[in-house]
Design a protein around this nucleic acid. Structure first.
Length: 535
RNA sequence: GCCCCCGUAGCUCAAUUGGAAAGAGCGACGGACUUCUAAUCCGUCGGUUGCAGGUUCGAGUCCUGCCGGGGGCGCCA
């Protein structure tokens, strides 16, 4: 990689100047073209330790690098407070093109960071007390895209959905159903909304809250599976909470905690001492005074199963902000089980709001995810959610999204891919075959539009890695849109096939188009968005 | 009251995790179709990054304090 070449050159130049180089020489792509193709701030960072002025050190460094320029480098310049900027010949981008097509869709932008570490990503896990809402779709897109990014970075990933198919909420759901059936008002703490009434109408089972609740939960879960499938989200495992509670897992988990001297009794309840594990509350109930396990007890049993039974090296739980209250106790409890801190990560997705009002499952005025998918299609729904960071609480104006859906970023990106396919069809129609890359003169690619496409492609490996390390798949979405943007510019200004384009240039551009196709396919694949051949 | 997230162009969001002169899309205005799809491209307008301090070569980004918004603080799940 060019970065390594430059870093090594900088390192040895520093040594030559009698300056101790830092652990890692940082090389970045300047935001502005005037600042060259690559840049290092190393003169700024080591100046103080070296007892030299940044600018003066940068000058000396640049002079040394200029004297024996690394591959592709045409000029080394000093700018600003002491940045050393590298200007590269276009050949470095032609090499990128070669890398992309040689490694292809399967290998370009792939990393072995994970070293086959086994990671479980648990996401959605919405309670089967009703249909999924828009927020579930957003966090679901996130979880699925994160899983894809992790896989591309060498992790062995399993996607899991924790089905909360037990406990008071199921009973409460059953109560609501039965109340509606006998024409009574739904209890205050119950579930409202049209879907409950519909379920009540369909239910003809016994007059028992739990039975009715279970029946409704099953119906809801089927609906949830179907909705997720419509979005292209597949899980490797649907893990039932009931299966945990019906086994001895909870009791075993408490026994393990007791062995570790962290369990005590008070007020007729059984408690876990969490103070030493970063929990501000210091203690949590595991067994209520009525003898029932708490949700936390079940959750810890579940996480014990993840780490200690199934042996995942790392678990990433994706929660909505409405479950933030679980975070401290869960992190503390898992550590109390003897799982090193850091192996459990919890990502919190902020609430999605709609201009028409907030979503609340109990109030029953939410927009079901299903409606959004039917309305916009899965691709729009996914890309829309993946264009924003998990930390921002998005505001969706449904009318506006619907009205402008034909000019959404999705179609913009997909059209770039379709245009590429269109070029392929034209080439086939005119019997133009791509020659082997070695026989093609890539140095003909000098148009700014062509170079911009290649610059984007050169960034993909870094983007994927950054998205993985920071658990931020939305960066892939941002990147894909940029690549599409540059491709459209190229498409507009640079004809590939036809009169006025020499056969040699057509060949070079056909390979450029192929590289762009590979980049788009990789990016869209990581996002779970289709890459259509035509629109 | 305490904890988490956020505050960036009229609107919706980015910003290589501390880099140089903060970028896109939508909206507004003005241009470009005889050739691979104009679902596209080009240009213009638009900013005290909520406010005030601090850290340093350098802050939208880190620290402190305010202001504002969202979420969370059960022997519910």
């Amino acid at each position: 990689m060019i970065r390594d070449v430059l870093a090594e050159a900088v390192r040895s130049a520093l040594v030559g100047l009698g300056v101790q180089p830092p652990g890692a020489v940082e090389l970045e792509r300047p935001a502005r073209r005037e600042h060259g193709d690559w840049s290092t701030n190393v003169a700024l960072t080591v100046a103080k330790a070296a007892g030299r002025k940044p600018r003066e050190l940068a000058d000396a460094l640049a002079a040394r690098l200029q004297a024996a320029p690394p591959t592709h480098v045409s000029a080394v310049e000093v700018a600003g407070p002491g940045f050393v900027n590298f200007r590269l010949r276009d050949s470095w981008l032609h090499d990128i093109l070669g890398d992309v097509v040689e490694q292809g869709e399967d290998r370009y932008g792939r990393h072995d960071l994970g070293a086959a570490e086994r990671v479980q990503v648990e996401f959605v896990s919405a309670n089967p007390t009703g249909p999924l809402h828009v927020g579930n779709g957003w966090w679901g897109s996130y979880g699925d895209a994160l899983a894809r990014v992790l896989i591309r970075c060498g992790y062995q990933v399993s996607r899991e959905y924790y089905v909360n198919d037990t406990g008071g909420q199921i009973r409460s759901l059953g109560e609501s159903l039965l109340a509606i059936r006998r024409g009574a008002p739904v209890p205050e703490s119950g579930y409202q909304g049209a879907y409950v009434a519909e379920l009540a109408r369909a239910y003809n089972g016994p007059d028992d809250e739990v039975a009715a609740g279970r029946w409704a939960a099953e119906r809801n879960l089927a609906d949830i599976r179907e909705t997720l499938a419509a979005m292209g989200i597949e899980f490797d495992e649907w893990f039932s909470q009931a299966s945990i509670e019906e086994s001895d897992a909870v009791a075993e988990t408490i026994a393990l905690l007791r062995e570790r001297g962290l369990v005590f009794e008070d007020d007729g309840a059984v408690w876990l001492r969490t103070a030493d594990f970063g929990d501000p509350r210091e203690r949590r109930v595991l067994v209520k005074s009525d003898g029932e396990f708490t949700y936390l007890a079940g959750d810890l049993a579940y996480h014990r199963d993840k780490f200690l039974v199934r042996g995942y090296d790392r678990v990433i739980d994706v929660f909505g902000a409405d479950h933030q209250g679980q975070v401290d106790s869960l992190l503390a409890g898992v550590e109390a089980l003897g799982v090193e801190r850091g192996r459990l990560e919890i990502e919190i997705g902020q609430m999605v709001s709609l201009v028409s009002g907030k979503m609340s499952k109990r109030a029953g005025n939410f927009v079901p995810l299903r409606d959004l998918i039917d309305d916009l299609g899965p691709d729009v729904t996914r890309l829309l959610s993946l264009l924003t960071s998990l930390d921002s609480a998005p505001l969706l104006d449904l009318d506006k999204v619907r009205a402008t859906s034909h000019e959404s970023p999705v179609y913009y990106v997909q059209m770039a891919h379709a245009r590429i396919a269109g070029i392929g069809r034209t080439a086939r129609d005119r019997a133009i075959d791509r020659l082997p890359l070695e026989q093609v003169d890539l140095s003909l690619l000098v148009h700014e539009r062509e170079l911009e496409v290649l610059r984007s492609l050169s960034e993909l490996p870094d983007v994927v890695l950054g998205a993985c390390v920071d658990r931020a798949p939305h960066r892939v979405a941002t990147w894909v849109r940029e690549l599409a943007d540059r491709f459209h510019g190229f498409y507009h200004d640079c004809w590939v096939i036809g009169e006025g384009v020499s056969p040699e240039l057509t060949q070079a551009r056909l390979w450029l188009v192929e590289a762009a196709r590979i980049g788009l396919a990789i990016g869209l694949g990581l996002l779970g968005v289709h890459a259509p051949e035509r629109m």
